[in-house]
Write a protein that binds this DNA or RNA. Structure first.
Length: 209
DNA sequence: TTCAGGATGTACT
DNA sequence: GTACATCCTGAAC
């Protein structure tokens, strides 16, 4: 399990390193696991797109000042949540937004949470766009304001780069996958920060061969 | 395949 | 009152 030491690192380092890691959500019905494929860095010290830009403290941004490894989950557009993991030292308002993933375990439960029906009844488009957005990820993993400001923990939500830790036997060696770096999404209001190359995407294996 | 429009609640000014 | 780190649907191409 990745601990607060990992999240205490530089935010861009963490955002890059989280690609390919497994996000594990513990629920009464069972475990839901996905592999992280898309992240973005938010660094309050210098970043107009960050809710805590210039160390601004508000009721919402307060979570960003908490210790590394804290969950920052907030409501957006009235109906979706965005999952972030707090980085750097306590008091330094930074986080990594998780924007996309691939389902690994508990896919049936994720489908029920997303669409209210089983995987078999989902359309091809629904399956194709399963976890490719921050709102979708939170819906599939049943993450809401309930989890905001809590620490990552083995009984709630945690992250690892070792599949053995969540009960998967040795996976076949995965092919290397290329990382694409680009501008962040949906922050056109953020002036010069709009163009910061702080988005990291793990490209599909098929594009790497 | 792309695109416009609507759903929806709350933090912040 | 305004803006928002979004997503889905249905229409047009």
């Amino acid at each position: 399990m990745l601990t607060s030491d990992f999240f205490a690192q530089d935010t861009l380092t963490v955002a890059r390193a989280l690609l390919g890691c497994y996000l594990v959500r513990e629920r009464p019905e069972g475990r839901r696991v996905c592999r992280i494929t898309e992240t973005e860095a938010y660094i309050g010290r210098i970043d107009k797109a960050c809710h805590a830009y210039g160390y601004k403290r508000t009721k919402r941004s307060e979570t960003l000042f908490m210790p590394p490894g804290t969950i920052y989950n907030y409501l957006i557009y009235g109906m979706y949540y965005c999952l972030n993991l707090v980085t750097e030292a306590e008091g330094e308002p930074c986080a990594v937004l998780l924007r996309g993933a691939e389902a690994v375990l508990g896919e049936e439960d994720m489908a029920r949470a997303r669409f209210g029906k089983g995987l078999a009844e989902c359309s091809a488009n629904q399956r194709k766009n399963f976890l490719n957005g921050p709102g979708k990820l939170c819906r599939a993993l049943a993450l809401t304001r309930e989890e905001n400001a809590k620490a990552l923990s083995p009984s709630l939500l945690w992250v690892t780069n070792d599949p053995a830790e969540f009960g998967l036997p040795m996976l076949t060696t995965a092919p290397a996958r290329e990382v694409q770096i680009s501008k962040r999404i949906g922050i056109d209001y953020a002036e010069e920060a709009t163009d910061f190359p702080w988005r990291f995407v793990l490209l599909p294996a098929s594009l790497t061969e």
